[in-house]
Design a protein around this nucleic acid. Structure first.
Lengths: 340, 340
DNA sequence: TTGTAGGCGTTATCAT
DNA sequence: ATGATAACGCCTACAA
């Protein structure tokens, strides 16, 4: 007998099956102390663990949370995943990690699969896509979960009415731009994430706002787009240097971009922060160990993921939509210099 | 009716429940074409998906694979996770990602939890710990799964008899050391991973072998240990520079260490590869976009994770232990120079 | 305080 | 080729 069931425990303890159930599930139903002890001993002796599938079958949903990421090998999502998996573990449950490879269709497919697994909640790690067909599909998934009493929580804007745990991305873009301006920079370029992702768009919007507010936007803002990767940042700056190399500062949509920017600048014989100042949004774990310690706006990714799990686990008691905005904090390091 | 069950489909199609089951599970049991069509239509009309919990309950294991990592925010594990999750998805199943935070006790706890979830297989992402209590616990977990017809596959040595998909770590250490020697280096330091992890130990052993074979080991090898992170690499080199700064080359146990080494060297006014050559093992996605493109031995992490999933999915037909060694390949980039 | 009965959704076995 | 029945392990009434 390799699989120990509740029945085996009951037999061993000399009690009925429901009694065992009451003990192990900490039911409010009263159980005498002597009985409880007998059960607990039997559980220990047999090393019994309830079958999650059987529990899930009865309760119509499974005690599993799912995280949808675009690329789990990207530390951005890695940090989120750490927050999700570790917090889920605190609740004694496990978490799926789904990887879309930045393909919207995969994301929709994952939703179908997750629905089939009856997960307790879904966390959307990536920013929403502006693509209409995607939004429509996503919206109906959210609705399906809502009806069932479960939750889909987004860690970045989706352009949809749902539960959110995130930062103010526009304010973030504004903040780093203002910082460079305060340091005396006027020619400031921006390397953004993808044009079809809300997060990137909002951060970029913040940059535009800040530039405009300081009269630095004469319709000739230097903006390049990337795919949020080192490679993307590298290539974007390369392109930028070709057409408009006169910037003294660069705002990056995220830390990955900044790392690529470092490399591209170095290849052009430009030093950071000597010739060019670089600032970004993220503060990934290695930002302070980058070749030039990176000045960046800290996004509490771990906490975002962690909080999302808590919302899902508390969804039984709280039916209201969450809309939690986490604070960011500027980490001043060595990649920005003051301009005279 | 928010949850559509097989019964609903049967009613809609005007057939019995088992018939529906036969159609959707591609059973070998014969079903007439007309009946099949009716069922398929009903399935489509109701958007029916079988309940995984119910399936798992009947089959005694769940169609889920689990990956145990030490730190999912580390791209090393991220690449593995990508291979695992994406390949699992090809099989139409989902994968748990478990994060131990490098705490052996957590790992054992996860095994208990995974057993409870009746997962189809477990993939061990990290190298085995030399700790005896840990090995004993792990060994009994492996046995438990084996008895049940399921598999635990390791992506790195564990010092235990089990299924393996990995690289030859000793050969890897030898390879990078030999490369530096061929380039004329004789004073070569080594920054290793943790002393209690088999993977790190084997790579280090390879370094020792290579040095000895070339008569470069006079009992004064420069070796420092780290925790496999940027920070660890940074701190290890700092320490090394204090006591024995005369090296011209550094072998790093992995890419993360190398990144920290870059930074520490730069702080000391040392250039790469001008003053010091750096080589490592890994070839993480960003290695070629590092500040100095990193010369490193490629470890096919994605493929490792992917292959492990395939072994687990094929475990029904193949009961024999796997012992697959993947090939590595040196990526020559800019961090190593030839010494005259 | 304890036990009995029923059902969650699926599939395997046996009959038709 | 199709259907009735039972069983997987658990929990929630309800009964004693």
């Amino acid at each position: 007998m390799i699989r120990v069931s509740i029945e085996d425990v009951a037999a061993k303890a000399g009690v009925s099956v429901p009694t065992v159930s009451r003990v192990i599930s900490h039911s409010s139903h009263p159980v005498s102390d002597t009985t409880r002890q007998k059960v607990l001993q039997a559980v220990a002796a047999l090393d019994y663990r309830p079958d999650i599938s059987a529990q899930g079958l009865r309760s119509s949903f499974t005690n599993i949370v799912a995280l949808i990421t675009r690329d789990i090998s990207d530390p951005y999502f890695g940090e989120i995943a750490r927050g999700v998996t570790e917090t889920a573990n605190k609740y004694g449950i496990l978490s799926f990690v789904c990887n879309t490879g930045r393909n919207p269709e995969n994301e929709i497919e994952y939703h179908e699969l997750l629905w089939q697994y009856r997960v307790k909640g879904i966390i959307l790690g990536g920013g929403g896509l502006t693509l209409d067909s995607y939004k429509k599909e996503l919206s109906s998934q959210v609705e399906r979960y809502r009806k069932n009493g479960n939750k889909v929580v987004a860690l970045a804007p989706q352009g949809l009415d749902m539960d959110y745990v995130m930062i103010d991305n526009r304010a973030a873009g504004e903040c780093i731009t203002n910082y460079l301006i305060q340091k005396g920079h006027e020619k400031i370029a921006y390397i953004s994430g993808p044009q079809n992702v809300y997060t990137a768009l909002e951060r970029l919007e913040g940059y535009r706002l800040a530039m405009g507010r300081h009269g630095l936007d004469n319709g000739d803002l230097m903006i390049a787009y990337s795919d949020n990767s080192w490679k993307g940042g590298y290539e974007a700056v390369k392109a930028l240097l070709e057409c408009s190399p006169e910037f003294t500062g660069i705002c990056c949509g995220n830390d990955n971009i900044a790392m690529g920017v470092f490399r591209a600048l170095k290849e052009h014989g430009l030093t950071v922060p000597g010739n060019v100042s670089v600032i970004s949004i993220g503060d990934l774990p290695n930002a302070s160990y980058a070749d030039t310690p990176l000045t960046t706006l800290r996004v509490p990714l771990y906490e975002l993921g962690s909080k999302a799990v808590e919302i899902i686990m508390g969804s039984d008691t709280n039916k209201y939509n969450a809309n939690i905005i986490f604070r960011t904090a500027l980490r001043e390091r060595d990649s920005v210099s003051r301009l005279k």
